[in-house]
Amino acid sequence: MPRYLRHLTGTAALLLAAAAHAGIGVGDPFPSLGSAGLAGSLPDVSGRVVLVDFWASWCAPCKASFPAYARLHTDFASADFAVIAISVDQDEAAYRAFLRKTTPPFAVARDTDQQLARQVDVPAMPTCFLIGRDGRVHFMHRGFQGPETETEIRREITRLLTEKPASS
């Protein structure tokens, strides 16, 4: 094969792989948080319904969403449910200042090199993914529109928690 064809094929493969990457959506398995290189302590999520929220200190709707997630965390505390808020902040000082102000009761971690955000291909800030006991995304929500969004997420959490786990 001529050299230029080899180069063209290689470039095509790379570009097509980049273009074809569609991110994580409903029905897809969510990447393992443990191996995503996140900074921060994460709760054990095995067999639990997990709400993973991508946020940033510079994102106004993200700030507005924190009290709602705190309520969800409190209301479903007795169930097998966890909220994990993953910051995409690259400015660690801004991240820490935000947490000092908001003091969220749920788990928070930082995607230091934005590796997970890139892998998931977060479509908007904030975006939350509701992950079922099977490790798959059952619901996702772009942005945060106040009580309407909270109600929608609450309904989905309730549905997932009451759903019987599929027998394997």
Partner: peptide
């Protein structure tokens, strides 16, 4: 053809991603 078909004009490749907008 490669440049046209490979998605160089795709927003996935050229846009500023939501997590990069600090």
């Amino acid at each position: 053809l490669l440049l046209l078909g490979s998605g160089c004009s795709s927003p996935k490749l050229v846009r500023v991603h939501p997590w990069e907008r600090a």
